[in-house]
């Protein structure tokens, strides 16, 4: 099992194989399941992602039971149609895909956790945008998920992917890093560039706190996926342009783990700090759950 980014990158270079291939080979070995079955399962995950990417941006969109979030993927879609976006249509398409997915999640719809539900929009945001940008085949998109998974496993086993243990950097930060690395590989970058993209993506979101208003995966989670996808695309482009992070990926992951451990409890998915503790955040919580629940 690949336990570090350096080990994974070295293996890819030595074997002259793409990272997704190494991931599939490892999965065959560990799960004792056929390649065909593994690819089929991953393809089903991609189906679920595609449905969520579409669903939140259709008609009036989807809304959460609390009404705190929803309908904003549709607003982006309409705005894109004006052709006047400041950051360009590709970037805003990525943002739309990410927000759509997380609006589906907040509405208690079906998503594929990548690596978590709160960060479920980031990776599909990257992949379904690159599908149109690079004319990806279905097979290439499935391979992207294996590449992302290979890096995600290393992050999860060396650090963490839960907001309650590591803050949002561990969720959207990890998702963004996985997306960045997968984007680099599918765009023709080298394994080293994948590693650099991952390192830059995590470095840029280092310290991001988990502060959900009323403890709900809505504010600011849905829009954090917009920054996750944007950061992934930018990190991938920087790596493909030949930029390096200088601090190696494995050290960045270790640093994220230490930062996560140092975050106070109020900023680790308790809904007690950050935006959740603003006067408006507290009012929203009281409106939804009543005052009796508060004990802070």
């Amino acid at each position: 099992m690949y336990m570090s980014v350096a080990e994974l990158v070295d293996a890819a270079k030595t074997a002259k194989k793409p990272i997704y291939e190494l991931m599939i080979e490892q999965e065959i070995k560990i799960s004792k399941t056929s390649r065909e079955e593994i690819v089929k399962t991953m393809s089903r995950n991609l189906d679920v992602m595609e449905i969520a990417v579409k669903k939140g941006a259709e008609g009036d969109g989807v809304f959460s039971p609390t009404g705190l979030t929803g309908g904003e993927a549709v607003k982006i879609k309409k705005y894109r149609a004006t052709g006047k976006t400041l950051s360009g249509d590709i970037m805003m398409q990525a943002v739309q895909n990410a927000i759509s997915t997380n609006e589906v999640n907040s509405s208690m719809g079906v998503v594929c956790a990548t690596p978590t539900a709160g960060s479920a929009g980031t990776l599909p945001g990257v992949i379904f945008t690159l599908r149109d940008r690079l004319n990806l085949t279905r097979e290439q998109m499935v391979n992207c998920l294996f590449t992302a998974g290979a890096f995600g496993m290393i992050i999860a086993n060396n650090a963490e992917i839960a907001g309650a243990t590591g803050g949002c950097q561990a969720e959207v930060g990890s998702a963004s890093a996985m997306g960045a690395a997968a984007a680099v590989e599918v765009a023709g970058g080298t394994p080293d560039q994948c590693s650099e993209a991952l390192a830059m993506a995590i470095s840029n979101l280092m310290g991001l706190v988990c502060d959900p208003v009323a403890g709900l995966v809505e504010l600011p989670c849905v829009k954090r996926n917009a920054i996750g996808v944007g950061n992934a695309m930018i990190a991938a482009d920087m790596a493909l342009a030949g930029l390096t992070n200088k601090i190696p990926a494995d050290e960045v992951i270790a640093a994220m783990h230490k930062v996560g451990k140092g975050l106070p409890k109020a900023l680790r998915e308790t809904g007690l700090g950050g935006l959740a503790a603003t006067p408006t955040g507290i009012r929203m919580k009281e409106k939804i759950f009543g005052k009796s629940r508060d004990r802070d």
């Binding site: 208690m108 709160g118 479920a120 998920l145």
Partner: peptide, 9 residues
Amino acid sequence: IIGPIMIGP
């Protein structure tokens, strides 16, 4: 990591 397929949130 890529999964599970699940009902949110």
